[in-house]
Design a protein around this nucleic acid. Sequence first.
DNA 1: AGTCAAATAGACAGATTTGTCTATTTTGTT
DNA 2: AACAAAATAGACAAATCTGTCTATTTGACT
Lengths: 196, 196
Amino acid sequence: MSATPVAVTPSSPKRDHLMTTAWRLFYRDGYRAVGIDTLLAEAEVAKMTLYNHFASKEELIVAVLERRSAELLASVDTAIEVAGKNPQKRLSSVFDGLKHWFQTDDFKGCAFIRALSEYPEPVHPIHQSAWSHKRQMNARLLSIVTPAGAKNSAQLADTISLLIDGAIVAAHATGSALSADTARSAALSLLKSATA
Amino acid sequence: MSATPVAVTPSSPKRDHLMTTAWRLFYRDGYRAVGIDTLLAEAEVAKMTLYNHFASKEELIVAVLERRSAELLASVDTAIEVAGKNPQKRLSSVFDGLKHWFQTDDFKGCAFIRALSEYPEPVHPIHQSAWSHKRQMNARLLSIVTPAGAKNSAQLADTISLLIDGAIVAAHATGSALSADTARSAALSLLKSATA
DNA sequence: AGTCAAATAGACAGATTTGTCTATTTTGTT
DNA sequence: AACAAAATAGACAAATCTGTCTATTTGACT
């Protein structure tokens, strides 16, 4: 047996720092809007350091999205677990997290929806990476509603996914966090109908 | 009394043609991704013609979005009217239109959500123009569910808006039109609950 | 101290960005 | 045919874009 399995991408302080800064700027202003030079100036990192760690800007964006996805999924997993075993409470905790997020100062919508939007071609790696996150989020919802005994649980999870994405877009557009409550009410109502 | 009231923006063949080409390219590739020169080459129009009709690229984008919004709202109004007076049928017709749209070859999601995504700052004119469309669409939904006697009809219309936007994003990401049916089922189910 | 990899500054390429300006030609209307 | 408005080509500015290359310096480990 070998030692701990190798990480896919070797971790490095500079690489991490670049990704952190890149995330901040991309999320704040947009992927195409932020140029490499701006990022490098903000991160105080040399250009060759970036291109030694990432083959291209595109690859950097994908890396940033995947890290963000992992963080987000972990945070949702934790919230669900903390909420206990009751399916309604578990589901509601997802919308609690959503609402809290909407109220943060630097909230600018969903980085993945915005990535889909800026790279609209479905075959594009960034597009695919973004959707991959949404599919994984859907899996979490399914793991909530299936044990609740909901009939057609897959469709219910899909519906809740629609509500969540719609709520994020609405919150971004309006600056209001109310859409989280709207989506929560609908989700709980649909769950109730599906378990009746 | 004067003759017919003046149009806010004088109609012109060149202006129209520019907007048509701009719409096609912006929707296909993205607002930031399409440069002025690309647009002019595709439209076979001189640069000064563009800048005689529009003060800036930003103004052109807003004009394109507003025209598209007017077209879309008119098409929804027609669909609702054709569907008759029954609220369920009216609501369902909206999702028929959605599904049909998802199946078109050049479908690339919602131009307005994508505009919100590319111009994430809420004070930005493009951002505001995009959200203005969503509010007007919400008004149509409200005009469907209110006469149905739904309690809390405003919240119901909001919820259906969330479902629609979520469905558009999902259809764009997956290339599947199934999200239209998922959203329709949920919308009808919620309408039923609200009128029980 | 010596070695080797990593990070640095900075020039450079070549293309592209939005927008302005001029001088000419086309078009539509009396 | 004469006039005026609209559209044209094309140069130009000044900035920005991603990515490459070189030569030098830094930092860590033995």
